[in-house]
Design a protein around this nucleic acid. Structure first.
Lengths: 258, 258
DNA sequence: TCGTTTTATTGATCTACATCAATAAAACGA
DNA sequence: TCGTTTTATTGATGTAGATCAATAAAACGA
């Protein structure tokens, strides 16, 4: 069963959706507030990276900050929905999936705090992928018209091409066609993502299922599990379920590259 | 042996390069000219898509149109070179490759007329991939400062996110992990690329080697060859070397999808 | 043009991973 | 909390495609 089935609930007020069970809350003020970009930890990586003062105030006024999270398993936006805003991830995590005609979903990526959601869509009227929360997730909502400013557009160009570069990295990883290498690259990458948010690079909890990892890497989840078991046997990592401990990160990196 | 070895020759005048044999022609006027964006077939897909009149004239004045081609096998830009211009492809074709430390190259994509080269680099001071001509190739050279205009930036955003969407498609293709499906998807995709340039979708010549296709798809070239032989045996296509004939394109598409 | 180098094809073998299956462990909801 | 559902683990088996090898066909350069 897919996570993105009929009982998904969209908690963003008034968000367009094809889900029959969409729950729209009336009380806007209790749900969202204007963003506080001045004090935001992620400002240097976000759209208003280069603006300040009056211009930043104007930008922040147009941005809605959610107060209640998108719950684990819920859909933020669904492939095919009209696209009229970007999101930024403040806390939690998301998976980006492509919904196939047969009902299955194929995982295209994972997003962590600081990430901008929707970079593949400018120029497209419609969301090309579905975004699903992996855990309770807080976001900011940036309507497209707010990004008229020149400095914002330059930053958007930078963010999209940065994402493009990272997708080329992913292409290289997928094209090695060696399961254990793909899994190791994934683990090292996750470690780096945690580290860049000030968390431990050696000890972390993966928010996504092994089935999601497998889908992302183009493998079966059995193979992901077996690969991790093998890495554990070699002492390169320990794990209890999705909790990962890497005693020697450099050793893992070296092992991956030869 | 890689194509991007020491005897690569860069025919773009004054282009930075690490190649010892770089040939720089003195006579600029015989090599390049201002672009003629007004009469360019590719304008709707290029950067100045949305500008006209006076603004287009100003843009075109900043753009250099090459008169002599980059020769087959030659390097247009090398990974690590300083990045200060985009290119657009007018005729010919290129491959985008990642140069590995061990000297091997891994193919990340192919570019055909109408494509903009360098979409992954804005925000990066340096080329992240090497571009090599697959056949004699003509380009336009667009210095980054020329893209100050607001409409040009909007179009650049559109182009980069469009490329990002196409990389997500590639991710989906690579993650199916089924050789013959990957090859069929590639052939169908190539057919579409030829068709969109007004050429035959049923009968075309692949400009890249099987080894490049294999590298791009994460396979061995033997497997690419075998897969094509199998498709030929089933009557889904005919080929003589790299010349491909597809008698029934829909049949091939249907076969690929089940 | 011919001789050399590079690329493509075909065959034989081997292995990593998919697939099928059965159990165990989490996660979830009443 | 317990009972159900979903996800993860481990085992047995089969197969697609990697690998090694040898020949054929292009492509290239003098």
């Amino acid at each position: 069963m897919s996570n993105s089935d009929a009982n998904s609930i969209i908690t963003w007020p008034g968000l367009p959706s094809h889900s029959p069970n969409t729950r729209i809350r009336r009380d806007r003020s209790s749900q969202t507030a204007s963003a506080d970009c001045y004090n935001c930890l992620f400002k240097p990586h976000c759209l208003p990276a280069e603006i300040d003062g009056e211009r930043l105030t104007r930008f922040a006024r147009g941005v809605l900050r959610s107060r209640r999270p998108v719950k684990a398993g819920d859909v933020l936006v669904r492939q095919g929905d009209a696209m009229n805003a970007l999101y930024t991830l403040r806390a939690g995590s998301l998976k980006a999936v492509f919904d196939e005609a047969n009902g299955y979903e194929r995982v295209l990526g994972f997003r962590f705090p600081g990430a901008v959601i929707g970079l593949a869509e400018p120029g497209n009227a419609v969301w090309t992928r579905t975004f699903i929360a992996l855990e309770d997730t807080w976001l900011c909502h940036i309507p497209l018209p707010v990004i008229g400013d020149d400095a914002l557009q330059r930053q958007l160009i930078r963010l999209v091409s940065e994402r493009l570069r990272s997708e080329y990295e992913t292409h290289l990883m997928l094209a090695v066609n060696d399961g254990s290498r793909k899994v190791m690259t994934f683990i090292v990458e996750m470690s780096a993502r945690f580290a860049e948010r000030g968390l431990s690079a050696h000890r972390f909890h993966l928010p996504m299922h092994y089935m999601d990892i497998a889908s992302y890497l183009g493998m079966r989840h059995e193979s992901v599990s077996r690969t991790l078991t093998k890495l554990q046997d070699r002492g390169l990592l320990h794990r209890k379920g999705r909790h990962i401990v890497i005693p020697d990160l450099d050793a893992l990196r070296r092992f991956k590259d030869d």
